[in-house]
Design a protein around this nucleic acid. Sequence first.
DNA 1: CGGAAAGTGTAGACACGTCAACGAACCGGC
DNA 2: GCCGGTTCGTTGACGTGTCTACACTTTCCG
Lengths: 156, 156
Amino acid sequence: MDETVRWLTPEEQHAWRSFIRLHDRLWGLLSRRLQAESHVSSADFAVLVELSEAPDGRRRFLELARVLEWEKSRMSHHIARMVKRGLVVRDECPDDGRGAFVVITDAGREMIEAAAPRHVEAVRELFLDHVTPAELRTLARISERVVEKLDAEEAP
Amino acid sequence: MDETVRWLTPEEQHAWRSFIRLHDRLWGLLSRRLQAESHVSSADFAVLVELSEAPDGRRRFLELARVLEWEKSRMSHHIARMVKRGLVVRDECPDDGRGAFVVITDAGREMIEAAAPRHVEAVRELFLDHVTPAELRTLARISERVVEKLDAEEAP
DNA sequence: CGGAAAGTGTAGACACGTCAACGAACCGGC
DNA sequence: GCCGGTTCGTTGACGTGTCTACACTTTCCG
């Protein structure tokens, strides 16, 4: 084993753990609120937002997966569950025999329109209200830069 | 419906989405590396770190849950899986007939000792190396402050 | 034209987390 | 002592995410 491991300094360890902790707590609370108040999961919410903003409320399957950065398998399973609950329907694609559209239903629109304002309010109350504009810019800058590096990491 | 929803500004929306995206990508990549290189999940890793640092490699069940901020049910399910794979064992508590200890096994120690250096290296390579010390301090400060608010939110 | 390769989506097995209900042991006051 | 409330931990049902393998198209190219 390589004995020259560069372990994290206490500051690094603290920052890293705090960051993970922040996300877990925040996302957990937001998800539970969304579920309790609006009866949709965060994943449902993401799909419905994407569809409701699309022309005719419809999107190709893998296009949706690409936008949300989900694996196609996850998308397939999740759409199956959403179909079962009546939030979306599948529609065959005339141009491509393999493909399919996912289309938001009226029930889906009602869900998202009821959930969105509450969700936005929660994001403000639980997060944005406690962060200064300068801090938010720093956070965004860090996030963009690191994600860019990760993209480069995964590409090859 | 309340028409006076304070929707997110483009800057806020961008920062929020970037933050979530950062966590998802980073955590996803780290988890997959941990699994592929060391055959442990992030959750296994967290448990093993905690146990390996404890005296005699043992901890009371709910104490572990409290430290990791996991629900007791999650802990119970997860420990059951780890027992099945031989990473930990359960041990009855003589003082308290209800209670139990979770104890790390030799195999568990080997796992964590092999996984830790790689994991630390990955955290550096994928995250810390791309963030300045000042940015890291800002991130830690934000995280602490918001988590504190969330604690206050959940307590009552 | 025809066959290989790549694209689109599905399906099953499994790991994981949450929720709610439960059983068993402890604890405090009467 | 014992009864009610609390704590400790388990369990089963269910929704979710990943991985692998698969089936069916389309497309590319000789």
